[in-house]
Amino acid sequence: MVWCCRVLLRKYGNYVDNLRVLVKGGSGGMGLPRLGGEGGKGGDVWMVATKDVTLKSVKDRFPNKRFLAGVGHNSSVYELKGTHGETCQIDVPTGITITTDDGFKIGELDKEGDRILVAGGGHGGRFKTNFLPSQGQKRILRLDMKLIADIGLVGFPNAGKSSLLSKLSHATPQIADYAFTTVKPELGTIMYADYKQISVADLPGLIEGAHMNRGMGHKFLKHIERTKQLLFVVDVAGFQLSSNTLYRTAFETVQLLIKELELYNKELLDKPALLAVNKLDLPNAEDKWQELLKQLENPKEYLDLLPDELVPENPIEFKHILPISAATGQGVEALISCIRKSLDQQADLDIKALSQERLQSLHTESYRPVKKAPKLVRHKH
């Protein structure tokens, strides 16, 4: 078991989902006072979302993590207006959020080809600056990888998320019967008969206290911020991480997962959510499934029996609750259909909301008061 833990830690160490870098725009070039020459502008630093790039490859290729643009050329007798300094382009993966060291968000790069200016070059020296150039912008930035997927699997370790992902899609995640098999995000794609594709992300399992960054806390939770919908996966028999931790029933597990999301970011609870109750192939699973279904139909009657730390302020109303067995494939086809239906419904609602916004905007524009032209007053002569 000790050997397994070492392998997992080493594997996780090879996965990089955040990076801290220094970027600096080039200084401007000197002006030429006696001829009124203007120095060239310093080069800018841009980040560009590029295919087949990872934060690990950026880190390996640029171990010092410093990115400097070229300085602007000085003005001279032969070149009164100095040329611009060389631009520095940093190829980064899609799904990147860029923030300054003090937490100010600069922007996001969500799709291939997106680009953003992260450090401007200094101006060249000219008459109004007494022909002295300015320095380029210097910043320390944090690059944070947040997975983009249609569906994010949410569950405690060993709930069967990896097995479910392999059944839902062509992904081949590592699967074993011990906790924390998934130590980095895994992406799969559900293919439908009409060629519709839906991306599904299996994320590292939560533990109690994940919102306080225990275990893989924030490394997990940040990824579901950019998924469209959530798919909770719970073991019908409940969950216990180890002999030193409390046993949680399936109902308690659901509430605890909701609570962890709520404490990390309440906005996550606004996402549409589905619930898959796994391992229905195990003995006595049917009785436990019926008990859980009864509790979920009338949660208020049972929430009072839970400790305060387990009770979420805003319980989730699941769009679909399905019994499945990722091991045997029971209920998986029904789940695939529900995922498609739920996402299609959300897309329709988004389109209607956008249409209403546009209509409201047009309505406001049409009733905007128009200034009347002044009346012409004819004077009698």
Rank of each mutant, 00 (worst) to 15 (best):
V7W: 10
R10E: 14
K11A: 15
N14Q: 14
L19V: 03
V21M: 01
L22R: 11
G28W: 01
K56N: 07
S57H: 04
D60V: 09
F62G: 03
K65G: 03
K65A: 13
L68I: 14
G72D: 00
N74L: 09
T83Q: 10
H84Q: 12
G85L: 01
T87Y: 09
I90Y: 00
I90K: 00
G95F: 06
I96G: 01
I96N: 02
T100W: 08
I106G: 00
E108F: 10
L109H: 01
G122F: 01
H123P: 14
G125Y: 03
G125N: 06
K128M: 11
T129I: 07
N130G: 15
L143H: 00
M145P: 06
M145D: 08
G152Y: 07
G155D: 02
F156R: 07
K161W: 03
S169H: 08
T172G: 07
Q174T: 15
Q174N: 12
D177R: 08
Y178V: 12
A179S: 11
T182F: 05
L206E: 01
I207R: 02
G209F: 04
M212D: 13
G215F: 01
F232D: 02
V234A: 05
Q240K: 04
S243K: 12
Q255G: 11
K259V: 05
E267M: 09
E267A: 13
A285V: 04
W289R: 00
L293P: 04
E297I: 07
D308F: 08
L310Y: 07
N314I: 12
P323L: 02
I324M: 04
G329S: 01
A334I: 05
D344K: 10
D350F: 08
D350E: 15
I351E: 10
A353Y: 10
Q356I: 08
L359Y: 10
E365W: 09
P369Y: 05
P369A: 09
K371I: 12
A373V: 12
A373F: 13
L376S: 14
K380S: 15
